[in-house]
Every structure is written in C-alpha cells, then in structure tokens.
C-alpha cells in the first residue's frame, strides 16, 4: 500500500495529530496544536512555505533538529490534497510519516547506537570510543522533551543493552499528552548525526579525563 493511501486511511479513522501539528480533513487544514482560534492565523496554501515556518524557534534560534518542541505558532495551511499534506508534514517533521508507516508495518530498519557509531568514518570515526555509560548519559541530556527532541527512541545501545530508564527513553513520541489512538508518534530509528557529533565530543572528554 502506498504511503499516501495508508496515511489517508489513518486520517479517516480519526487520527489528527503529529508532533505539534493538528490535522483536519474536509477541508484539509494544518495548524499548530496550540492555535485554537483559526481566524487569527496566517493562511498558507503552498506546502513549500512549511520549511520557513519550521526554520526558527519563536526566539529566533535555528531549529536544525525538527523534533524540537519549539515549532512556532500563528499559521494555518489550507491544502487541496493528501499529497500536499504529506509534503507539508515532511518539511515540518522530515520523513516522519514514512517512518511511522514502516514502524506500523514492522518494516522499519532500526539501527542500535553501537552499529551507528561503528559505521562512521572520517572525523566522526572517534565517536565509537564513547563508553556505554557516556552514551547512556548523552541520551538523558540530548534526547527527550526537556532537551532537544520529542521523538520516540526505537534503538538501544546494542542488542544486549537497552537504554536506561529516563524521560527520554520512555517518551512515546506524542506531545501535549495527545491520545495515542489519535496521534502519529514521531520516531527515531537511529541516533541522529547531531548525537554522533556529541558522542565524538564525549569520547574525547572521556579520553582526556583518563589518568596518564
């Protein structure tokens, strides 16, 4: 089944939320979950406008991780098709619908952290030297709603070692206490490259902290 068809069926079953976005059908509308008065919102009809909307936090910081809980408010998309809706969501939450569909169908290819770090080359090759505990600590200080990201983490450190219990490892990928039956979770199938860059820094700190 195509992603568009699977997404359409899911919307028709009553699902209306992904990340900080509310999705409405008939007509197709998309706005921030915190915006309830749609009359005051700036109307957009071009899906490509979504990139600009998701580019900065309300404080003007660059949102290079799109799972960040900082999507600005004040806009609404008036769209004509599910294809347009998919494109708009893919700019606000890149690949989120495809990852969700693969997860739902059990075809998602999750890669554990050790495999991800071990495949790095060049300057990021050294990220593989981070200790298991260092990696666990990074998850707690980089992932989860209080940090940079509101995605549900699907990976472990390695096959034998799950993530330690924390807000980050337990988060279900649905913000604002949304109903799991009516929301599409944001998913993290492998550590992002920002995490890899931080693992590299952490590995360096651990090396320098070792007694000579």
């Amino acid at each position: 089944m195509s992603l568009t068809k699977a997404f359409t069926e899911t919307l028709e079953s009553g699902v209306n939320q992904i990340g900080q976005i509310r999705i409405l059908l008939d007509p197709i509308r998309l706005h921030h979950i915190d915006d309830s008065d749609s009359a005051s919102l700036e109307i957009h009809t071009d899906p490509d406008d979504a990139r600009e909307i998701g580019l900065y936090t309300p404080e003007g910081e660059y949102r290079f991780t799109k799972g960040e809980l900082s999507l600005p408010t004040g806009w609404i998309f008036h769209l004509e098709s599910i294809e347009q809706l998919r494109r708009t969501i893919d700019l606000l939450y890149p690949a989120s619908l495809g990852l969700w569909n693969a997860w739902k169908n059990d075809t998602i290819r999750v890669q554990n952290l050790r495999d991800k770090l071990n495949r790095q080359t060049g300057m990021y090759r050294h990220s593989r030297n981070v200790s298991d505990q260092g990696a666990q600590d990074l998850v707690k200080c980089l992932c989860g709603p209080t940090n940079k990201c509101v995605k549900k983490i699907l990976w472990k450190i390695d096959e034998e070692q799950p993530l330690e219990d924390s807000e980050a490892s337990q988060f279900n990928g649905i913000v604002a206490q949304g109903d799991e039956a009516n929301a599409i979770p944001l998913l993290c199938q492998e550590a992002c490259n920002f995490f890899v860059a931080q693992a590299r820094k952490k590995a360096k700190e651990e090396f320098e902290a070792k007694p000579a």
Partner: peptide
C-alpha cells in the same frame, strides 16, 4: 522529488521511507 542531508533532517537513512 525529495531532499536529504548529512547534517540536517531527513538523514540519508531516513529518506527512503518518504519515497513511494
């Protein structure tokens, strides 16, 4: 038509999931 990145999202590993 899609884009993917080394330093931004979607990553290259995520990109194929977007494609029908």
């Amino acid at each position: 038509v899609h884009c993917c990145f080394w330093k931004e999202e979607p990553s290259m590993r995520e990109a194929l999931y977007m494609i029908d």
